[in-house]
Amino acid sequence: MTNELFEVKTGLAEMLKGGVIMDVTTPQQAEIAEQAGAVAVMALERIPADIRKDGGIARASDPRMIKEIQKTVSIPVMAKCRIGHFAEAQILEALEIDYIDESEVLTPADEANHIWKHDFKTPFVCGATNLAEALRRIGEGAALIRTKGEPGTGNIVEAVRHMRTITTEMANLSTLRTDELMAAAKNMGAPFHLVAQVAKTGKLPVPNFSAGGIATPADASLMMQLGAETIFVGSGIFKSEDSEAMAKAIVQAATFYDKPEKLAEISDGLGKAMKGLDMLEINPEDRMQDRGW
């Protein structure tokens, strides 16, 4: 892989900054998302809340459904493959998906290995719960990192934990002397060159977005203020009472995340947000964020 390919991959993520990427399951939903101002859509068969409810094995979506969504919108279309399932990723690349999400929302296909993402021309986004996990994914070729907040819960608590963890760990790295970085890389289990780069720059070498549990404009604002550059909303839109209004409001919140008066206006009379789940209601073995490493 050349740097030139990598900058083209991260380049698209740069264009998505300050925006909202929405999960959609039908062309109609994709159209609502685009009309509301989404910068991209994630095409999948079931939104995370329903995957959680239905159980069974969750796989990459039917190409026909993806193609219909591609035909409907002009914004980038992303799609998910299972962790480690490089054949699903190859199919998504053949479909000319704009970004592939190697996602914990689907049932993992490989418990030891993630996809070697450098082999693809299509850029990948991967989830991370901490800095070491983020750097391992970037080492494998991910061009975009997102938090791994517990999907389908409408509960922001895990995304907050991941974002704060990543930010704190980056700040800690930047206080280390050069002769301490190899030990840090060993303890973290992350590639040395990326550890050294973060220690020097104080930030991830790729854009840093947030996903998992975002259900209101205030949630979007919270994650942006904590350092997220763009927001993924999964179940939060199409499980809310008034999807169109909620979609539009979260788009505005991603722009005016630091203006509370504006957020008060945006949040006014939106109807019910998705019901949501407390983390205590989820069995430990059902936690999607623990999939992958």
């Binding site: 740069e14 264009m15 998505l16 900054k17 300050g18 925006g19 685009e34 509301a36 101002g37 989404a38 910068v39 991209a40 002009s74 914004i75 980038p76 788009v251 505005q252 722009t255």
Partner: peptide
């Protein structure tokens, strides 16, 4: 800047 022109149009008008 670069970005999505549909999103920008909407926000500019809004």
């Amino acid at each position: 800047p670069g970005g999505e022109s549909t999103t920008m149009t909407l926000l500019l008008e809004e």
